[in-house]
Simulated scan of single mutants.
Amino acid sequence: MTDPLAELLDERRIREVVLRYCRGVDRLDFDLVRSAYHPGGIDHHTGFDGTVDEYVEWVRPLLSGFTGTMHIVGNHLCELRGDQAVAETYGTAVHWGSPESDPRRNFISGFRYVDHMAERDGRWAIVERFAVREWTHSTVGAQLAPEGTGPRGSRDADDPYYVLARRIQER
């Protein structure tokens, strides 16, 4: 008989793997991206198939070519099978960069992450990922300048998240 509370906790831990990956990509924190995979994990992206280490080296210069990205995840369905799981996560990825007239630097895409997850040594992580691109739309001419001063995200240790995390850690 399965323990519903244990299953709920496993599902939450699996969703956190997906969220950690998204934060890593958006903040250019490639150690965080790598932590979402088990060693030797496999990734299948548009234009790429290989190990997590190869993926990080492939995606690093691509992401650095954007001013920013934002991955927003929605529907998440996880089918647990003991210490293995299949997780499907729907999302939208926003990309922006220069020149603003370049549709390859300014677009939104709809995707699904279809992940084989496994728990090893008490840690859930990706064994194999299929990053399925469902659609892409150009946002050329659609981006507006900020409406005023205020906090802005950055793709380094000065991002508000990392600043707060350090502050709390120092207490």
Rank of each mutant, 00 (worst) to 15 (best):
G47Q: 10
L9M: 08
L5I: 15
I108K: 04
V18P: 02
T69F: 05
H71E: 04
A145C: 08
Y113D: 08
R13S: 14
M1V: 08
E57F: 11
W124K: 13
A145P: 03
G141Q: 05
A93L: 07
Y90I: 10
P4Q: 06
S154G: 11
P160M: 10
V17P: 00
L62S: 11
H116T: 12
E57T: 15
R129G: 08
F111E: 06
G153H: 08
V140S: 00
W135D: 13
T149R: 14
D158E: 11
L63S: 03
F107A: 00
G110T: 10
L144E: 13
C78H: 02
G82H: 06
H137V: 09
V94F: 15
R13Q: 12
G47E: 03
A142T: 14
W96T: 03
W135S: 13
F66A: 03
V163D: 08
F111N: 11
G41E: 10
A118F: 06
S35D: 11
F107S: 07
R13V: 00
A118W: 00
R27Q: 02
R133V: 11
S35G: 05
V114E: 14
V132P: 01
D83R: 13
R166C: 00
F111R: 12
A165H: 04
G91D: 07
E11M: 14
D29W: 07
P146F: 06
Q143V: 11
D29V: 03
D121M: 01
W58Q: 07
A36N: 02
G65Q: 04
F111V: 09
S35L: 04
H137P: 00
G141C: 07
A36K: 01
D49P: 00
D10A: 15
R81A: 12
